[in-house]
Deep mutational scan, measured.
Amino acid sequence: MTEYKLVVVGAGGVGKSALTIQLIQNHFVDEYDPTIEDSYRKQVVIDGETCLLDILDTAGQEEYSAMRDQYMRTGEGFLCVFAINNTKSFEDIHHYREQIKRVKDSEDVPMVLVGNKCDLPSRTVDTKQAQDLARSYGIPFIETSAKTRQGVDDAFYTLVREIRKHKEKMSKDGKKKKKKSKTKCVIM
């Protein structure tokens, strides 16, 4: 069974824990209790493949930012979460993405942009803004509501699919490099 290491990042209060708990335990946590770091595991079937999701729910508070490099190193894919009623959390996505790329030393890291709290009427981040940002990053965008469960499975499952595509691409690139290195030079 394939294991996928997913990391949920975003500013404090955007609903990272609520999304994760909704996926794992099928219930909505409405009281806000700032996370330092929590880890969850769940076995699911995605596109006919049974897999184990190892999900790291991270601290959004700035005082825990020193811990970010460590979990970013171990993560295979990242859910970059903002709240649709919090423009600052949307603007912060850029910083999370840049930090992930720096730590992973790669421009090509599996990510999904997630606009959470889409059940709320007080939207300050337009869907088109988020779609445009995701398009500019070359990553999928999904709106979710941890409260109603809308888009929750889709967000995590899409990230797994992005990781699969990335692994497939990397193995193809690896095979191309191996083929090239088999060419021999004969000096007579």
Rank of each mutant, 00 (worst) to 15 (best):
E3Q: 11
K5G: 03
K5L: 02
V7E: 04
V7C: 07
V7M: 09
V7K: 03
V8A: 03
V8G: 01
V9N: 03
V9D: 04
V9A: 05
G10V: 00
G10Y: 00
G10C: 06
A11Q: 09
A11D: 12
A11S: 08
A11G: 07
G12S: 05
G12I: 03
G12F: 03
G12T: 05
G12V: 03
G13S: 10
G13L: 09
G13D: 11
G13H: 09
G13I: 03
G13V: 04
G13R: 05
G13F: 04
V14M: 12
V14G: 09
V14Y: 09
V14E: 12
G15V: 01
G15S: 00
G15W: 00
K16V: 15
K16C: 15
K16E: 05
K16P: 00
S17R: 00
A18Y: 00
A18Q: 04
A18R: 03
A18D: 09
A18F: 00
A18M: 06
L19M: 10
L19G: 12
L19R: 00
L19N: 14
L19C: 12
T20A: 06
T20Y: 00
T20F: 02
T20Q: 06
I21T: 13
I21R: 13
I21S: 12
I21Q: 14
I21A: 13
I21K: 05
I21L: 15
Q22L: 02
Q22S: 14
Q22T: 09
Q22Y: 03
L23K: 14
L23C: 14
I24H: 03
Q25C: 10
N26L: 04
N26V: 03
N26I: 03
H27A: 14
H27P: 01
F28I: 05
F28H: 07
F28Q: 03
F28N: 01
F28Y: 12
V29F: 11
V29G: 06
D30T: 10
D30Y: 07
D30G: 09
E31F: 08
E31A: 12
E31V: 08
E31T: 10
E31K: 12
Y32K: 03
D33G: 14
D33W: 04
T35H: 15
I36P: 03
I36S: 01
I36Q: 02
I36N: 01
E37Y: 03
E37P: 00
D38K: 01
D38A: 02
D38P: 00
D38R: 01
S39P: 03
S39Y: 07
Y40R: 02
Y40P: 01
Y40I: 04
Y40F: 12
R41A: 02
R41Y: 01
K42G: 05
K42N: 06
K42R: 11
K42M: 08
K42C: 05
K42W: 03
Q43I: 08
Q43N: 11
Q43H: 12
V44I: 10
V44T: 11
V45Y: 06
V45S: 12
I46D: 11
I46F: 07
I46R: 08
D47V: 03
D47G: 09
D47E: 09
G48E: 11
T50G: 11
T50W: 07
T50I: 08
C51F: 12
L52R: 11
L52M: 10
L52Q: 12
L52E: 08
L53P: 11
L53F: 12
D54Y: 04
D54T: 07
I55N: 15
I55S: 15
L56T: 13
L56W: 12
L56C: 13
L56D: 13
L56P: 02
L56V: 14
D57R: 00
D57A: 01
D57H: 00
D57G: 01
T58R: 04
T58D: 14
A59P: 06
G60L: 14
G60W: 11
Q61C: 06
Q61L: 05
E62L: 08
E62F: 05
E62I: 07
